[in-house]
Design a protein around this nucleic acid. Structure first.
Lengths: 230, 230
DNA sequence: TTAATAGTGTCTATGAGACAGTATGCC
DNA sequence: GGCATACTGTCTCATAGACACTATTAA
């Protein structure tokens, strides 16, 4: 390691916040109110403050820009994006975080800098979608891919669910995130035979059409072995 | 994203370079020749230069500090470490990279700043090991864990092997990295039945005791499905 | 001939995937 | 009763894991 030199870059955090609502995978985006990319869609995020740790900065930016009560259930570091030229203002190194949350209310964050809302990812990846600012499209792609693969071998799917959920709701999470159909019977067997994936509450959800469903909570297990095939 | 502010931190890259030699997993370390942590062991790395991309910085530092001819076969971003206080000189954000290499010659890098050499990881993790500078012990732990899990579901083990290798050599890589015995017969069957993992060269290695072994090269496959259980 | 390593074959238990039927609510 | 959804059960095929034998060299 060479001698001490003056800092060359700003440090930012950007968040890929995913949720499942209305049977579709949604991403939390902001509409930028300032230059550069004014009016474009972007990920929530911002510069890290002095003596501020990165997860703290991520949570702070999320609160400031979205005003969503209650932190997301899962927050993990995704990757760092540092290509020179990725920000027209100068060199910015962005540490991206991936957050998974249950179906939260529509954010009310509406500062002068940004307006936040949920956007179906299908309207971002397709050709008809609005482009994202900076290199955020790459970050989103990486975040979604991380989420998809983590559903295979971890119990993270439950973080998309409310406190109490049915097996069918859990399966819908998989189907929506993966964009594929799963056999309800095999899925049921797999989930219930995996120790610590879900815990029965004894409660029953009634009121909807069809046979009432048992309600479960998240179990203590974090890893799935064997994994669930995509 | 808020308004532009002055940079608050330096950007560094640090490398976890792993190899298998003498039937043991080895880490490339440097002995620091300058303060702080002068005389302590540390990971190769250094500050990122203006307009320099991170992978380029990683390769440059590796060359400068180790003078090992030929780049490592695999280089991937590991994680970013940014906790305030991790460097006594001031705030430094370090983007760690994981590199896997075949059994390379002992590095000749011996600048005034650092002296580089291979160290068995068993002498770093145990209680008898020399401590590493900064938070590099955490980085090494994360790097080794990444390597271990990637052997399960990717063909990365071949990057620890020379250009031509035997199935037994490949199995040794798994055994050394995982610290566990594998059944030679089941391993053979698994590797050869996975399309594109290894490609037979038709050559035979003779001269050693026992029946001569067939030589293989890396195949085109990158992922293993189903994975190899640890 | 013996030692040492390379490679092949067989059996079994487990689990994924495909599929049919039963249970229990609301209308 | 009819419909919709929840849940249980069965069969088959693939494969991981355990284990024994044969093949081919050097000393």
């Amino acid at each position: 390691m060479s001698d001490w030199e003056p800092p060359i870059a700003n440090i930012a955090v950007d968040l890929v916040v995913l949720t499942v609502r209305q049977d579709a995978l949604h991403l939390l985006v902001i509409e930028r109110g300032i230059e550069p990319y004014r009016g474009a869609l972007a990920l929530p995020g911002g510069f890290v403050q002095e003596d501020e740790d990165l997860p703290d900065a991520a949570r702070r930016e999320l609160m400031e820009e979205t005003r969503i009560p209650g932190a997301p259930l899962h927050l993990e570091q995704l990757r760092t994006y540092a290509e020179p030229g990725r920000d027209p203002r100068g060199r910015v190194i962005s540490v991206a975080y991936l957050a998974l949350a249950p179906n939260l209310p529509t954010p009310t964050g509406d500062t002068d800098a940004a307006r936040a809302f949920w956007m179906p990812v299908s309207r971002l990846t397709g050709a008809t979608g609005r482009p994202l600012a900076f290199d955020h499209a790459n970050i989103v792609r990486d975040g979604i891919e991380r989420a998809r693969s983590k559903l295979e071998y971890t119990t993270l799917a439950t973080t998309f669910c409310p406190e109490r959920f049915t097996i069918t709701e859990l399966r819908r999470v998989y189907e929506v995130v993966w964009g594929a159909r799963l056999d309800a019977r095999n899925f049921q067997r797999k989930v219930l035979s995996t120790e610590g994936f879900v815990v029965p509450t004894g409660e029953i959800r009634r009121g909807e059409a069809g046979r009432p469903a048992r309600l479960y909570t998240r179990g203590l297990a974090t890893n799935l072995f064997p994994p669930i095939a995509r």
